[in-house]
């Protein structure tokens, strides 16, 4: 497994994917910097709410799709799947490692986001102590909430050779986020809306689906992840390459 991971990392080197990791944290930080400073009782909460809405509502689910499609690019171009499977590696191993890489890239994104958040807070001169507990829960929650999505996107990306097709699917289901998160009933069940819900629950006075308790969200996320990952893996193991 470790060796597959190393070879996957090699494939990623010199590709521009590291640049994509920076886009969202950078934009979110810029927007937060432009936002006027208000006297707030909880300045960090306010800052997180502003930035996480931009980051989590559309960027995070869409980036999960971009990363998943990217990870499969080398194999789809130039018959790489055949080449990789004549090597003594198991399909399960390759699939798990690829999923791990997608999650790793998303984690890097979250960490950069945290860096951006702290940076903006310092530049704006927020004096209140940093609420590590709340920030950690929010960022980790948003990351975990991406898991079902990443699993689904990886399944589609391995199945379709086109780069844009899995992304099209992702876009079709991510756009409704703008409306779906307003609904307390449907919001938590919607895999594409879960990242923003997980990031913002507890960060602000809730409305709509933000009122859903984190435990419920976690159960739905775990269920969705198990379903998509198992389905994708089963398909991948049987697929004719």
């Amino acid at each position: 497994m470790w060796r597959i991971f190393r070879s996957e990392l090699l494939k990623l080197r010199k590709s521009h994917i590291t640049l994509l990791v920076f886009v969202s944290p950078l934009l979110a930080s810029l927007l937060a910097l432009l936002e006027s400073v208000q006297e707030e009782a909880f300045p960090w909460h306010q800052l997180l709410a502003t930035m996480a809405l931009l980051h989590g509502l559309l960027f995070l689910p869409l980036l999960a799709g971009v990363f998943a499609a990217f990870i499969c690019r080398y194999e789809h171009a130039g018959g790489g799947w055949k080449q990789i499977f004549v090597l003594p590696v198991s399909r399960t191993g390759v699939y798990v490692v690829k999923f791990g890489l997608v999650m790793g890239l998303l984690l890097a994104c979250q960490l950069l986001f945290l860096g951006g958040l702290l940076g903006v807070g310092m530049l704006k001169g927020i004096e209140a102590p940093v609420p590590w507990d709340m920030l950690g829960r929010s960022l980790l929650g948003g990351w975990v909430a991406c898991a079902p999505l990443a699993a689904l996107q990886l399944a589609v990306s391995t199945a379709w050779s086109s780069f844009a097709a899995p992304l099209a699917l992702n876009v079709i289901f991510t756009l409704p986020n703008i409306l779906v998160i307003n609904s307390e009933k449907f919001g938590p069940w919607y895999p594409w809306g879960q990242p923003v819900l997980a990031m913002l629950s507890g960060a602000q006075d809730g409305f709509g689906a933000f009122l859903v308790p984190p435990e419920t969200l976690l159960i739905v996320i775990a269920g969705g992840f198990a379903l998509f990952f198992a389905g994708g893996l089963l398909y991948f193991r049987r697929k004719a390459m």
Binding site: L20, L27, V66
Partner: peptide, 19 residues
């Protein structure tokens, strides 16, 4: 040749447009 770049630019632009 790397389609992730134009698509990410498109995604970032869309999100910018919302703001």
């Amino acid at each position: 040749s790397n389609q992730a770049v134009p698509l990410t630019v498109g995604i970032a632009g869309t999100i910018l447009s919302l703001y």
